[in-house]
């Protein structure tokens, strides 16, 4: 196989390619507009984090990794780790909100969108970003797509597979945006809520990971039905997948917890500084 086989998409997705190009393009434009004003180390770290996040999402969805994810349970778990946890988190830490500043001023703003589209969208957004709903959806989606019957259909049908991966990516982004997005800068605006949200999502993920890892039965026969990318015993495949769900995925959530704590610390220090 040539290097091209590894780099080219297994299933070409114009939607993904356009999204990555538009978001990446607008962000890059914003960075060039900012670069003379902000020359702090934090700025460069953020830029790095953003591009890493975008690149990681592209790699798992639009290269050979996507092929492997369809025919190996553990690669599939890795793909979802990136789509739901790592990629969106890096984008949020990388200051994805700058994308807005990258939009050329001749384009109409959100307030120009007709009310009948704007209002329902805002209501949906507010609903899904509710501090009780958001963690439940975050964990609920992981569980739902791993119900064996649903998982079977999602792996066999191209449409459902597409729906599964997009739902994970969008939900991952919404969740990390809520927890670590720029809208929240201080204790008054829900430090405790965010801390609780992070704690709440860690435990069910660990339980799920442990269940997958320690289960003695092959839970997902779709990989036998469709064939695996290379010969490997079904149970080993499941154990690797379980470990990925168990350790790195819950570690990412712990990392989120640490980031929330750090943000509070910085806020407290700043407040103290202003007082003295």
């Amino acid at each position: 196989m040539s290097a091209l086989t590894y780099l080219l998409p297994w299933e070409f997705s114009p939607v993904l390619l356009l999204s990555v190009l538009i978001i990446g393009g607008l962000y890059t434009r914003a960075v060039f507009l900012k670069v003379n004003k902000e020359r702090t180390a934090k700025f460069y770290w953020q830029v790095l984090s953003f591009y890493l996040g975008l690149l990681s999402i592209y790699i798992v969805s639009h290269t050979y990794v996507d092929y492997l994810s369809q025919y190996m349970f553990w690669v599939h778990r890795f793909q979802h780790l990136v789509l739901h946890h790592l990629g969106p988190l890096l984008l949020v830490l990388g200051g994805i909100q700058w994308v807005r500043q990258g939009v050329p001023s001749r384009f109409p703003g959100w307030h120009c969108v007709p009310v009948f589209i704007r209002l329902p969208s805002e209501l949906c957004y507010r609903f899904i970003q509710h501090p009780v709903i958001a963690p439940v959806v975050f964990v609920g989606l992981i569980y739902m797509w791993l119900i064996p019957e649903i998982h079977f259909a999602a792996m066999l049908s191209k449409k459902l597979y597409w729906l599964m991966n997009w739902s994970m990516l969008i939900d991952g982004f919404l969740f990390w945006w809520l927890v670590l997005g720029p809208e929240w800068q201080g204790e008054q605006k829900g430090f405790k809520t965010r801390l609780l949200m992070m704690v709440v999502v860690v435990v069910p993920q660990q339980l799920l990971g442990a269940y997958l890892t320690l289960s003695r039965n092959v839970l997902y026969d779709v990989y036998d039905v469709c064939g695996r990318a290379w010969p490997i015993s079904p149970l080993s495949d499941q154990i690797y997948g379980g470990v990925i769900t168990w350790i790195p995925a819950s570690m990412m959530s712990v990392l989120g917890l640490v980031l929330v704590l750090r943000r509070r610390l910085i806020y407290l220090k700043r407040a103290e500084h202003e007082l003295s």
Partner: peptide, 27 residues
């Protein structure tokens, strides 16, 4: 063709006799 039906196959490493395992769809 396997891609069309959303199945796949893969080969293991060859042994000394040149035989190898094949992973494939059981459906």
């Amino acid at each position: 063709m396997t891609k069309r039906y959303r199945v796949t196959f893969g080969y293991g490493d060859k042994d000394t006799q040149g035989d190898y395992e094949v992973s494939h769809s059981s459906a």
